[in-house]
Amino acid sequence: MKTKKIFAMGLAVMMTSMNFVGCQQAGGSNDSIKVGASFDLTGSCAQYGIAASNGAKLAIEEYNAAGGVLEKQIEFILEDNKANQQDATNAFKKLVENDKVVAFIGSDISSTTETIAHLAAKKNIPMITPTGTKADITTIGNNIFRACYIDPAQGELLAKFATEDLNAKKVAVLINSESDYSSGIAEAFQELFEANGGEIVRVENYGNSDVDFKPILTNVKNADPEVIVIPDYYEMIANIATQAREIGIDATLIGGDGWDGVTEKTVNNPEVVEGSYFVNHYTVEDSSEMVQNFIQNYKAKYNEEPNAFAALGYDAARIMLEAIKTAGTIDATAVVTALQNTDLECVTGDITFDANRNPVKSVSVIAIQNGQNKLYKKLDAVK
């Protein structure tokens, strides 16, 4: 796209509970460009869907306040998929068949994103997911893109970090065997860490419903690793970390972007994750003007600090709108071509796309210090 711009604009918006049209009459008009979205707003992963959709809304409001795209306002039509694949299917069909959207943003978790991607590929609707990390989602169609890095990329980055920064030689890996996210990160980590000369001294599996981790953690403790990799989401991490420290494990804990939120979950026992590290898409400590403007505007609108899901939602919306602007039309083929040629400064890094429509960008390594997430370093993707 060869366009790098920083947006720091006033916000003007008319909202309803499930859709809004910035600077337009209620119900929209023939002069609008309809962009659809589907996120989990009320289901089991609503904390992710709400943040991602809020980020997307903010970006679209900013574009509308600046005059829109192709001299038209953006009508953003948002549907709740409740983290359910059938609801995701129904939401997408409504958006395309009834609302006549010309582009799609979403979903949040990989399962609903994958379901929607198959439908979007058949309809040739340009689609970008902010946070669907499962590796093969974008291979479903050449019109499917994502703003986040994929699960294997996180595993490779963690292996690079464990080897080069932590100087780890012996590592244990805990895997949620019921999670594609956890398995994808773990498998990539093990492959690269061993290729770099490291030793995996223990691998333990658990499931979504498990609550007592001390038996497998005892096995890990006996293997005496220097580092333990736990690729899962923050609620599970908080439970595992607490039990690990209770039985005397003092190894360094590391993980992927699912850790975002673990400091809030362990506010009453912050010592259990103290000194841990995780890779994430961005950090509020980034001093760039783009990041700080985004944080300021997001906090002004939602009265809370934006997490990585919010930042990715914001970036995904901007990438899609810039592609429409560059294409000069809402024609799907032209928009997809513009998406593939993206070169855009974003909150989560300067983004281009590889041949599989995955973003090429750096990541932030976050260190947990004194109960706070602190930027440790920026890490380039493994080549």
Rank of each mutant, 00 (worst) to 15 (best):
K5W: 01
M14L: 07
T16N: 13
S17F: 10
S17H: 04
V21I: 05
Q24A: 14
G27Y: 10
G28R: 10
G28K: 10
F39H: 13
D40V: 12
Y48L: 11
S53L: 03
S53E: 13
A66S: 12
A66P: 00
E71A: 12
I77N: 03
E79N: 04
N90C: 00
K94I: 15
N98I: 15
D99K: 13
K100D: 05
V101L: 03
A103C: 01
G106C: 08
G106E: 02
I109R: 05
I116D: 01
I116W: 01
A120W: 15
I125Y: 05
M127R: 04
G132F: 01
K134C: 12
K134H: 15
A135K: 15
A135S: 13
A135M: 02
R146G: 03
P152G: 11
Q154L: 12
G155L: 07
E156W: 00
L157A: 12
L158W: 05
E164Q: 15
E164Y: 07
N167W: 00
N167R: 03
K169N: 10
K170D: 03
V173D: 04
E178G: 09
E178W: 14
D180R: 09
Y181Q: 07
I185Y: 01
V201A: 04
V203D: 00
V203F: 01
Y206C: 03
V211H: 07
I216G: 00
T218G: 04
V229Y: 04
P231V: 00
Y234A: 04
E235Q: 03
I240L: 05
E246L: 08
I249Q: 01
I249M: 04
I249S: 01
A251I: 15
G256H: 02
D260V: 11
D260A: 11
D260C: 04
G261F: 07
G261P: 02
K265C: 09
P270M: 07
E274I: 06
G275Y: 08
G275V: 12
S276R: 15
M290F: 05
V291S: 02
Q292A: 08
Q296M: 12
N297M: 06
K299P: 01
P306I: 15
P306E: 15
D315G: 06
L321R: 02
E322T: 03
I324E: 07
A327F: 03
G328I: 15
T337M: 05
N341A: 14
E345D: 10
I351V: 13
N356L: 09
K361D: 00
V363N: 09
S364I: 06
V365M: 10
I368W: 11
Q369V: 13
N370Y: 03
Q372M: 10
Q372W: 03
Q372E: 15
K374R: 07
D380P: 10
D380H: 07
A381W: 05
V382W: 13
